[in-house]
Design a protein around this nucleic acid. Structure first.
Lengths: 384, 384
DNA sequence: CCACTTAAGCAACGCTGTTGCCAAAGTGCA
DNA sequence: TGCACTTTGGCAACAGCGTTGCTTAAGTGG
């Protein structure tokens, strides 16, 4: 790769659609990088890359040669022979690039340094008062980022992904009214951090960052809903392999889905919101009832969007994972079975792996994603 | 266009991702065709196509020359001069290709012949008993298709889109248990019709076909929910310009969203489904209450997916559009305003245009869509 | 009538993936 | 040990894509 790829996902002021050769080149490079990442430490041979990408073996040879020249990939051993010359295995070079992930939560912040393979290289966790002055918060965040960068001196860091609670605009990087923290309303966090860190910054909701990270890890998880039960209740949606943010980054408002017409009033002003019902059950020490309600909401989500699975996370869930996972699964199954009749479909409910740093790692993945292409995206397949 | 484009959206046995030059060529041709269609009868100049696609003017000249050679586009007058040579206007040739749209409903079927511009050229409406034997239904459908084809003898028909109620698999073209019509369970309708009609066939749910058609018509309707209230209640979802079908074409099960925990039992076996509540209100002669409930469900959908607008259709709505549109709008607004606080966002609620033949026309659009590219899809924009 | 402006095609070009061919590097049997 | 065979993967030539530089076409306006 003698010249840099055009960034596959940019600000995208307007999607134009026309494609030219440099774009084609960058796209194919991103596709192969995506396949290399998916192969993990085991690696892939050139011919396997050709099969999976639809490119010819010769094209794969050329493109991987550029990737190796750029230091992004390397040869790593060879397969067993099947009667002829054994296949050479190619592997991603994890240390070729790094990305920062920063999770700014209400009372703490977590920063990670992730390598090209998406593995965390360094993690820093520190208390944070998101209600403090903006400059104070930015300084703390910058210091934390500097600490994780110190873990790999000289590393080529391509950007920082920042995950926050509450409504925000992913495209402009501006925060909206974070519940209970009015001082952040309208604050251009991405611009401020870009300047402070000297790095490209992407900003997203915490649930979206988590969902994005989970989408990279779970193998065939093309579509799922990630339900986050913590101080509030939110969701991240992955549809067709990509995070669905909606027209204004507002998608995923799962907590204020009404599941009880004219039910008890919620803090948001509506009645019968699932968040109000769930949190009331949690407060009353009835996690089983909370899980039942959550399962009904999950069933609504599954039926409306036809997702493959449901993942659960957040502090409340992490405190008692078995109760929630089995409770939600039972409730969800009951709903689907009642409805499904012959369909008899079951949707797996699982705890989201990764623990507390999952959101920060997902934020780092948001940055890394600019280098890779998911198999779904792009023009389609090359060969008829 | 000396050789045929590779079909941009095919069976897609597996999305591979790699792109080569023929694919690039077909993609750009599809992009320009999409822009030509969007321009309508007014047409577009080459330079405007270049701006909107991101391609260079010279590339647009070459590609449009191929399109003109293939008969898909033509020159149509010129713009007023701005001091130099006036721009030549290009326009789609509507009669260059046609597509069949077939809506098989429970008690009637509607067939349309649509031209390249998506306009209906012929419409046939006939009673149909979907409960009859498969051969009988197929014969009736084939006869109806022959009738609309007769309206344009010699027309080049590229395929037929077929819209059905109930669950089905869009990818394989197999019907699942259509409510109340068990004989269709597992029937490979697409394969049967492909053979019978001698045309490529795409099969989709009626609500998806409607949503797809509406997505082509409404200008900037990148994302919306189409709610269909007829004998049942369903939805078609358009997210990011494309119909969202989910992993198994099961998305859009809006009617059995639970909005009343432990509410009245629904025919599906669950409790408090929005369909049961709505239809009960309709049966009781209380359309205002039905609209209120529908509005709560619409608010759930809007908040979960962050769509731009809500469209209403279906027989029940068509019978009393004003009541439903204003009732749902009021209910939806109330929900969003209560929640939104400063956001104060309003989501327009509109009746779906097109009347009874809308689903059939949308089905025809499903076929035509294989020729066009939406501005969102593809690799991105060409020029930095 | 002529200078100027704008549109659009021609020709040469750089670069993409593709094709045909050959060297490299193994296996397995004689 | 040697040789036939299989498979991998690079080299070289190539067709075809959009791009660039330039020319021609077709208007306006003084």
């Amino acid at each position: 790769m003698t010249s840099e790829n055009p960034p596959p996902s940019d600000l995208a002021e307007r999607a134009l659609g026309g494609a030219n050769l440099p774009l084609l080149r960058g796209h194919n490079a991103a596709v192969l990088l995506g396949l290399l990442r998916a192969a993990g430490e085991g690696g892939v041979s050139r011919l396997e890359l050709a099969e999976r990408s639809g490119l010819t073996p010769q094209a794969v040879s050329k493109i991987t040669a550029r990737l190796r020249e750029a230091g992004l990939a390397t040869e790593a051993g060879r397969r067993a022979s099947t009667g002829g010359k054994p296949r050479t295995v190619l592997r991603l070079v994890p240390g070729a690039r790094y990305a920062i992930g920063l999770h700014l939560d209400r009372d703490e912040s977590i920063a990670v340094l992730a390598d090209l393979a998406g593995e965390p290289v360094a993690v820093r966790r520190a208390p944070l008062d998101l209600g403090a002055a903006a400059d104070e918060v930015l300084a703390a965040a910058a210091a934390q980022v500097a600490e994780v960068r110190a873990a790999a001196p000289g590393a080529q860091v391509i950007g920082a992904g920042v995950a926050c609670p509450g409504p925000l605009d992913h495209r402009t990087g501006v925060l909206h009214r974070v519940t209970g923290l009015p001082q952040w309303d309208g604050y251009p966090l991405r611009a401020a951090l870009t300047e402070r860190l000297g790095l490209p910054v992407v900003l997203d909701k915490d649930t979206n960052a988590a969902a994005h990270g989970l989408a990279q890890q779970a193998e065939g998880a093309e579509s799922f809903g990630y339900l986050h039960l913590g101080t509030g209740l939110g969701a991240g949606l992955v549809l067709g392999g990509a995070v669905h943010r909606g027209a204004r980054t507002g998608a995923g408002e799962f907590g204020h889905q009404v599941v009880q017409l004219d039910g008890p009033r919620c803090g948001c002003g509506k009645r019968g919101c699932i968040e109000a019902l769930c949190l009331a059950a949690v407060a009353a020490g009835e996690p089983a009832e909370a899980a039942r309600v959550l399962g009904v909401g999950a069933a609504n989500l599954v039926e409306l969007l036809d997702v493959d699975r449901v993942l659960l996370g957040g502090r409340t869930v992490l405190a008692d994972p078995d109760t929630y996972v089995s409770g939600v699964a039972a409730s969800l199954d009951g709903q689907l079975r009642a409805h499904g009749a012959s369909g008899a479909r079951t949707v797996p409910v699982e705890p989201a792996p990764g623990g507390a740093r999952m959101v920060a790692l997902g934020a780092a993945h948001l940055v890394l994603a600019t280098l890779f292409a998911s198999p779904r995206g792009g023009l389609g397949r090359a060969r008829a």
